[in-house]
């Protein structure tokens, strides 16, 4: 079981969170009209074997979206920050 250190609530079990998505993909600006940019955001992933930045939602806690660094091969967990504090 993963345990995630929410910057607001502290160290909590995985079961309080839901996994969001790859946090590297960047949502295009609202007025972007190029479909390829949207396809890249919605469908295509690097899917790395190793370090990964990803969104988690502390859905049964503070309801903040977090950016967690985690290794997809070892499941080792690194830094966890509030998504709103991570620069675009």
């Amino acid at each position: 079981m993963l345990r995630i250190k929410c910057p607001i609530c502290g160290l909590r079990d995985e079961t309080e969170f839901t996994y969001g998505a790859d946090a590297i993909v960047r949502r295009p600006d609202m007025d972007e009209t190029n479909p390829q940019d949207w396809l890249n955001y919605v469908f295509y992933r690097d899917d790395p074997k190793g370090p990964h930045k990803e969104y988690w939602h502390h859905v049964q806690g503070c309801r903040q979206w977090l950016v967690l660094e985690r290794n997809t091969l070892s499941h080792e967990i690194g830094a966890c920050r509030l998504a709103r504090e991570v620069p675009k």
């Binding site: 985690r70 997809t72 091969l73 070892s74």
Partner: peptide
């Protein structure tokens, strides 16, 4: 529920 290449379950 999360991306994983580890053949481990929780």
């Amino acid at each position: 529920g999360y991306n994983s290449y580890a053949q481990l379950g929780g």
